[in-house]
Design a protein around this nucleic acid. Structure first.
Lengths: 327, 327
DNA sequence: TCTTGCTTTGAACATTAGTTCATGACTCGT
DNA sequence: ACGAGTCATGAACTAATGTTCAAAGCAAGA
């Protein structure tokens, strides 16, 4: 679909979704057949030109939200109905995350925002509607992948720039340095130091959470090798956030890989406004680990994941006994 | 709608819009009837819980169109993406205007068409593709320039004839008479009277809009003198349409020049099908004035101009274009 | 110029969404 | 407790949307 066609598609989609006209009416207005309009709207939808947000949450989700927020002392938690049936609920997370981020941008809540990495985050940003925000700056929290791969920090932040017109800052470095010595050298670079200090100054951090398992996205993209992953796993790692692998108590594991990550240290962002967007059956342990670390202040996830997380809790800190009744 | 209901509505809307499930599927999932789901989604939409964004240049243009059309009760409004960076977006207007005019001719919507003047209109007609229409007649709405100058009504209408093979009728008179007495004499001429009555009978009027400022095209072509322009400006004029200068409320200003124009009176075309083609940074006030006069029923403009016009509006009728809920 | 294979088109059909209306459940005042 | 009115409900219907398929259009190569 090129220029003219695309423009027509956007036009038709607008008239349909915002204008509330029927396809028949639009067809007349634009002098095309109804079928053509139907196809244009389908194309526009397909191309991701149409983004829908739903405000307000289902009661069950709200219950999960408050349970999780209370248990880990979060400032906020957002749980949305799971709609995907595959392991990674990208649709839900993209919509929920984009809704959150859009709100932040719209309210101008933060002028300098740190951005993590990952497939989920990439999807979130893809779903973000265009919003002019030239006064905001985004800064990457960790090195970019050296080899080309989907959803590396560069891509995520680049798309943010496209959509908002904001300024952005990358880490001109690999995600993991080849050795601890190499990392030292990299960190000594002025260009990196500048970005690091900018990242430290961010008012809000939006991060993804990685799992440690055969499905790990980092493995698929070649960011880490199987050997490296096995190693951190042996050290007890069950999850990852901004390049740091954590054990189930939320502590960074003692593995060389953790020291080779070109990224902010967790201590540097702890206590600040950090929001994680993550979900999926494989990530339950990882998300719990990150929650345990108390690095994050907000969590955006899906209902199935939230339920799984809550189910592993004992009933100690809630009056949540009633949800058992169903089924 | 209270708590529980609202929560269900949110879930249903989420499953529908984000999940892409059919209402039937959602009904099964939630154990409710399809009709109930339909109502829940309608309620959620009604309550403004669902926000839809359509990306793309064209979508933004459509938004501007409906906003402008609603605010000034136009029958239609066409906003095209601005491509020119100079003050007068001739390319855009020419293409959009030609597209409109071509459609009118092709559909044979009007057999007798009144034509105004101006550089924009000239450009529109230059851009018009050849289309045989010997059954259509064009009639000039105002006097031709006496001295040779670009884009006088003669040229515009002459080109129309070339392109369509239509018949045409000029005003054999200057654009402005030298005095009110002279104008009387001119109007008394049989040849002029005939054209005037033809002009009054036109089914469609296509006009340009002139600005009142140092860049005014009329000044450059010598149609009006600096002194005359200064005078109407002092009387409050901010825009011009078929030789009449209007103040910002859309009323013709009290200036002698206005009474010397050899052209139809605005009252004579008001209520009829009048379409203006105009755009450009300098013309914003002029276009607003003409819109305020409610003489025109249609406007063809460019995105930048439309945005500027809309920006001066308060948010009172934002929901424009949204079809009102049926009773 | 004539295939050949691909793309685009819209009429006809299939599915999904939206509306209406009769019904019964419920509320509230007496 | 009893009726008058209100409200929610879903079967049945209508409107809108989505899909299929045969035919037309079109471009590239022989």
């Amino acid at each position: 679909m090129q220029g003219n066609e695309r423009s027509l598609a956007a036009r038709a989609a607008w008239l349909s979704f915002i204008g509330g006209y029927t396809q028949e009416e639009i067809a007349q207005k634009l002098g095309l057949s109804r079928v053509k309009i139907n196809r244009l709207i389908a194309e526009a939808t397909e191309a991701g030109l149409v983004r829908v947000f739903v405000e307000g949450n289902a009661a069950e989700c709200v219950a999960l939200e408050s349970r999780i927020a209370a248990h880990w002392q979060l400032d906020f938690c957002s749980v949305s109905p799971t709609v995907d049936d595959n392991a990674l609920p990208l649709r839900t997370l993209a919509a929920a995350g984009a809704h959150y981020l859009h709100g932040v941008l719209e309210r101008g809540e933060a002028k300098l925002i740190g951005i993590g990495h990952g497939r989920t985050l990439d999807e979130v940003v893809r779903y973000l509607p265009r919003i002019a925000r030239p006064d905001i700056r985004f800064v990457s929290l960790l090195g970019s992948l050296t080899r080309h791969a989907a959803a590396n920090p560069f891509d995520v932040i680049h798309r943010l720039v496209e959509v908002t017109g904001a300024e952005c800052y990358f880490m001109p470095a690999p995600f993991f340095a080849d050795s601890i010595a190499d990392k030292k050298v990299l960190l000594a670079q002025k260009s990196l130091k500048d970005v690091f200090s900018l990242a430290r100054a961010a008012e809000l951090y939006v991060v993804g959470i990685g799992e440690v398992g055969s499905q790990a996205h980092m493995l698929a993209t070649g960011t880490v090798t199987e050997k490296e992953l096995r190693e951190v796993k042996r050290a007890g790692a069950v999850g990852e956030v901004i390049g740091r692998f954590l054990d189930k108590t939320g502590k960074a594991v003692a593995a060389e890989l953790n020291d080779r990550a070109v990224a902010l240290k967790l201590e540097e962002i702890k206590g600040k406004s950090v929001v994680a967007i993550a979900g999926g059956a494989n990530k339950i342990e990882a998300i719990k680990a990150v929650l345990e670390s108390h690095v994050i202040k907000g969590l955006i996830t899906d209902e199935a994941t939230a339920k799984a997380i809550v189910d592993t809790l004992d009933g100690s800190d809630v009056a949540a006994g009633k949800k058992m009744a169903k089924r």
